[in-house]
């Protein structure tokens, strides 16, 4: 681990999909034990960034170090060992639909450990208690609300006691109550389990409330970073537009296109 307790370090990362550059030479560091938020408008590849950190996608150039190991140069076996220590919470929860809540949380334990059933039971109930859904253990995933599914997925993500958790849009589509529950949960888990959290989100208010450090990404570049206060008072026009939700500004309302008049007349020219 490097001097300043950096747990994830992204260096000069470039990633393209087709001809579109999703990330253009970005670098960022994530501190251990902190909640770091990565924000940006939809479609800026925030989820892609998590998948790159998790080693599911490989960058065109640049490198990602997690806990001092270069993720994309690890052998398959070592990558899997590393992943056991990285939890990831998908937007949909990604629960396995053919088993109930209890078995879902027990799944990583059964796959990766040789614990007996009674130990597994204790652990599963502890994790479910932590997310407040111990009573829902017999339900099937299709009987859960979106917020509950996410909390179960969170219980599953912490089942193996990872060193960090990556949250992919944890607040999208939540009602205010489940939102509040999730916000509180992320914060408590981070302190009680001494986790490192990476939250990818475009939800400014709630994310800023729990984040220790914020990176803002747009057009493949990091346009601003700092503590929530620094970001709030940023001079950057762009950051201001994003944080305060203005419809037009440096980020244009229109998707890149030929000029309107040319486009309308284009049919006749053909």
């Amino acid at each position: 681990m490097s001097l300043n307790n950096t747990i994830v370090s992204v260096q000069n990362l470039t990633f393209s999909r087709g001809n579109r550059k999703i990330f253009d030479d970005i670098s960022l560091d994530i501190q251990q034990g902190k909640v770091t938020a990565i924000m940006g408008p939809s479609g800026t590849g925030k989820t892609t960034l998590l998948k790159i950190i998790g080693g599911q996608l490989s960058p065109a150039s640049g490198s990602v170090f997690v806990n001092g190991q270069n993720v994309h140069q690890l052998s398959r076996k070592n990558l899997y060992t590393l992943r056991k220590r990285m939890g990831m919470l998908f937007q949909s929860g990604a629960l396995l639909t053919d088993m109930n809540v209890y078995d879902n949380v027990a799944f990583p334990l059964r796959e990766h450990t040789d614990l007996n059933e009674s130990m597994i039971r204790t652990l599963v109930l502890m994790k479910l208690q932590a997310v407040g859904l111990r009573g829902a253990r017999e339900l099937m995933p299709n009987e859960l609300s979106g917020g509950m599914a996410r909390r179960i997925a969170l219980a599953r993500a912490i089942a193996l006691d990872p060193m960090m958790i990556m949250y992919d849009e944890p607040f999208t589509g939540q009602d205010p109550i489940s939102m509040a529950a999730l916000v509180q949960l992320i914060k408590t888990l981070n302190t009680t389990l001494n986790l490192t959290s990476i939250i990818v989100s475009h939800d400014v208010k709630d994310t800023a409330a729990i984040a220790d450090y914020i990176y803002i990404i747009s057009h493949g570049k990091i346009v601003g970073h700092g503590s929530p206060e620094e970001i709030e008072n940023s001079k950057s026009e762009w950051v201001q537009q994003f944080m305060h939700g203005k419809a037009d500004g440096p980020v244009h309302f229109h998707y890149p296109a030929p000029t309107y008049i040319d486009d309308l007349l284009a049919f006749d020219k053909n």
Binding site: M88, L96, F107
Partner: peptide, 22 residues
Amino acid sequence: GLMKATEQLSGMEMMAIDPIKR
């Protein structure tokens, strides 16, 4: 296909479980 669409396969990979084998 649905497991892929609902990120179950991806989720499994991130839990360090090879979805092809499992």
